[in-house]
């Protein structure tokens, strides 16, 4: 399959302004010769970035109108990040409304078990199953205006009306609660209290935590943005490097 590409003129011009003169001449040369722009020189980065947006899609394809994060992508990417010796840290950026429980927990467990330094940053929203993912990183940040909604699990689809269904729901919910309490400073009691609070949400029970509220409750480490997250990541990558050099096993 032979591939061709087209450009937006404005984007090409913006890139041009930033390039030093010599590179500009080379680019024009390649444009004349091949009829296409050569890519900007890749500066290898030792920090990689993973964005988790929209609905986290798990075992079922959601209708096309949903913006989704496909967990089957993230898993091999996380394995590659773990294996690649040049990558020292991972920044996980979240703006998700939640999604499939198993996929979400799978991603959370993978992030948690990475030996590289991980920092999570909740921007916009880190709702529902986004909460365990945010707490899975070594250090978590939340933007001052971001929100995290803590609410109980709901089952969808065909349900059999027996008490065992409720026990199953409890078990699923315990998985999520245990992960969150195991990776943050919040107590199980307080988390359950937030989960079942009435009065905060219009259509549901639960709590909406905004920025510093999430930090106050012990779910998230600190309020911050991209610069604080990257600074922390640099700090953690150098610490982990020292630990590994001194014979620590990760």
């Amino acid at each position: 399959m032979r591939l061709q590409m087209r450009w937006r003129q404005e984007q090409a011009e913006a890139e041009e302004r930033e390039r030093p003169a010599r590179r500009q001449r080379l680019t024009l040369q390649s444009l004349k010769q091949l009829g296409q722009m050569s890519p900007p020189p890749q500066i290898p980065s030792d920090i990689h970035c993973m964005v988790i947006i929209g609905q986290i899609e798990g075992h079922m394809l959601l209708p096309a109108k949903n913006k989704t994060t496909k967990y089957e992508h993230l898993i091999p990417q996380l394995v590659a990040i773990e294996q690649n010796p040049h990558i020292k840290g991972l920044l996980v950026i979240l703006n998700t409304v939640g999604g499939d429980v198993e996929a979400g927990l799978a991603i959370a467990e993978m992030i948690e078990s990475l030996s590289k330094a991980t920092v999570s940053l909740v921007l916009g929203g880190g709702h529902s199953i986004g909460v365990p993912i945010a707490t899975a990183a070594d250090y978590s940040f939340i933007a001052a205006t971001a929100t995290m909604t803590i609410h109980p699990l709901r089952l969808s689809g065909m349900l059999i009306g027996v008490p065992q269904t409720y026990e199953y729901l409890e078990k699923m919910q315990d998985r999520v609660i245990n992960f969150i309490t195991g990776h943050s400073r919040i107590t199980e009691e307080r988390l359950r209290e937030l989960m079942f609070k009435t009065g905060d949400l219009v259509r549901d029970v639960g709590t909406v935590l905004v920025g510093k509220d999430a930090v106050a409750e012990g779910l998230i480490n600190d309020v911050g943005g991209v610069s604080s997250a990257l600074r922390k990541l640099k700090e953690l990558t150098s610490l982990k490097g020292l630990y590994r050099k001194n014979g620590g096993d990760e």
Binding site: Q55, P63, D100, R154, V176, D204
Partner: peptide, 19 residues
């Protein structure tokens, strides 16, 4: 299947005609 999300399920699961 458990979808743990704040978006109402009827919103998530409704099929829409996409251009």
């Amino acid at each position: 299947m458990a979808l743990y999300t704040i978006v109402p399920l009827e919103e998530v699961l409704s099929e829409e005609e996409t251009a």
